[in-house]
Design a protein around this nucleic acid. Structure first.
Lengths: 118, 118, 118, 118
DNA sequence: GTGGTCTAGACCACA
DNA sequence: GTGGTCTAGACCACA
């Protein structure tokens, strides 16, 4: 039971972007939206996007080519490790919630079936 | 793509507590931990817990008996609706993430199997 | 010959603070000036100080106790390694400059003697 | 404690070039590398080098002969004053850092000995 | 046009 | 009072 307050907008946007990268919306080495573009898309201040990218860069998923833009890492192995981490992390979180609710595995699967059925 | 800025500690703790209630740790009409107790358990300031309970009470899941404490609602039907909402809400969030990553349904199920296998 | 543009105010302030920490102005585990205090002392915007501390924290020299302040790391071994790095790094930079000017070692020492003589 | 925001790439390159001039890599009155050449050497945009030379020229260390290029000043006395300033300035900066760390003179000298020993 | 830095200042969460 | 986040917007360095 540890509660962090890392659910700020910038971390949510970062998480979202990572999902898109991991889903192949942006390929390895591909240019990401510019700070200003992304700021407009998600309707936040550019500074907030600067921070989003700074975190992804610190994590190693993004690199900057100055005056040209931000790019997805080209390191495929690293990328795949991070992708796995990301997916499993989110799954684990969901399972923890289900467990707290004392849902059995089959109940969980049933709910997912319903959602996918739609 | 809509991002909320509402993931403060107290809402996270509230979410956690709801999970426990929905999992049956606290039955309908049962007394919940006192503000002080809970504050100690999760190691936060009592003020934060006051706020947690205030939110749950506003939502109708908790009621106060003036001098004797906080209790889980006795309204079973309402409780079950909220429980369903809670679970589906979390499942939906997880599915949205999986979709962003372009995981197929079977990939998602496989990951959950792995997690449950452990 | 690689030129970085990491000489922004916040990195300069960070370097300065590190010097003070390494010089013992702030002991291991001791509280550092608050963001607002330091902002006033060096006459910059608090956000800039936030960034200074963020970098020092990322480096591991500083940790935050939320709502109580920023503190010097208590890890003495780590601290001493960083201290050595800091000093040698600055010395190395100075020597590189001296070498570019083709100053001999004895000329360098003479200049330092003069400065210390004052 | 005064912090300047003036450590851009061009000023760093300028400082580097001055070091080389003061070290005799370019003699009094000698032709300096052309903008293009230097831009290629340090891998920056020619515009940046234009600015570097503009600053050195404003300082009086470099002069332009309209069609044939940039040259080191021929004024030996001035050159030597600037050289002294340059060296002492860098030494002073290093000593300030050492002092902030509360290194004694002998500790400073020991570190330099070590570096020169290598 | 690209990212980086900085300010001024509001507002929040927490103790 | 402590740090954290965010906005609006200016201005810079660089290509």
């Amino acid at each position: 039971m540890d509660f962090k307050r890392d659910k700020s907008i910038y971390s949510q946007i970062g998480d979202y972007l990572k999902g898109e990268m991991f889903g192949g919306k942006y390929d390895l080495g591909q240019k990401l939206p510019s700070v200003r573009e992304l700021a407009e898309i998600v309707a936040v201040n550019p500074n907030t996007i600067v921070r989003v990218y700074a975190e992804l860069e610190a994590e190693g998923l993004v690199y900057t080519e100055s005056t040209s833009g931000k790019f997805v890492t080209k390191d495929e192995e690293f990328f795949n490790i991070k992708r796995k981490e990301y997916i499993v992390g989110h799954a684990r979180e969901f399972c923890a919630t289900a467990e707290r609710c004392r849902l059995t595995k089959s109940e969980v699967l049933k709910i997912l079936e319903e959602l996918y059925g739609k």
